[in-house]
């Protein structure tokens, strides 16, 4: 009974994750310029990764606490902790990389297509000395 509920939760989160990762690909093809493509490519893949990695973490936790068939307890703990590490790395690095790419695109002269307002336009790209890119959350 409990195992069935777990299976359903895992299947639902797997399908949500796959759907959003697929949407990221479609968004990359459909949107008109770099900035909107970054919206699709960053938000959707991060959200999809949360659900896909979350389902694997759930499988690991189930094997850890109930010693599920096919996986020993050691396997379960390793699976859960290492997947959580990979998810943490994705969550930390994805938005920072997107910010760096958006800044680079704007400074190399790509204009947002169809923009109603551009406050940053015409500002000289200052040479910055201190980099605020390290995400020390």
């Amino acid at each position: 009974m409990l195992s069935g509920i777990f299976d359903i939760i895992i299947l639902v989160s797997l399908s949500i994750g796959v759907f959003f990762n697929f949407l990221a690909g479609v968004g990359l093809l459909r949107f008109p310029d770099v900035y909107t493509r970054l919206h699709a490519g960053t938000k959707c893949t991060t959200f999809g990764s949360i659900f896909l990695c979350g389902s694997i973490i759930l499988i690991g936790l189930r094997a850890w606490f109930f010693s599920y068939e096919g996986l020993t307890q050691t396997d379960g703990s390793t699976l859960a902790i290492h997947t959580a590490g990979a998810l943490f790395a994705i969550l930390l690095t994805n938005p920072t990389g997107a910010h760096a790419l958006a800044r680079a695109a704007h400074r190399s002269g790509v204009k947002p297509v169809g923009a109603v307002i551009d406050d940053l336009e015409g500002k000289p790209a200052k040479k910055t000395t201190s980099k605020k890119k390290e995400a020390e959350k």
Binding site: G41, T46, A86
Partner: peptide, 14 residues
């Protein structure tokens, strides 16, 4: 191109 590459990286990790 780099935006596409970044997206590929994330999907490959998952």
């Amino acid at each position: 191109r780099i935006v596409g590459l970044d997206t590929i990286n994330t999907i490959v990790i998952v």
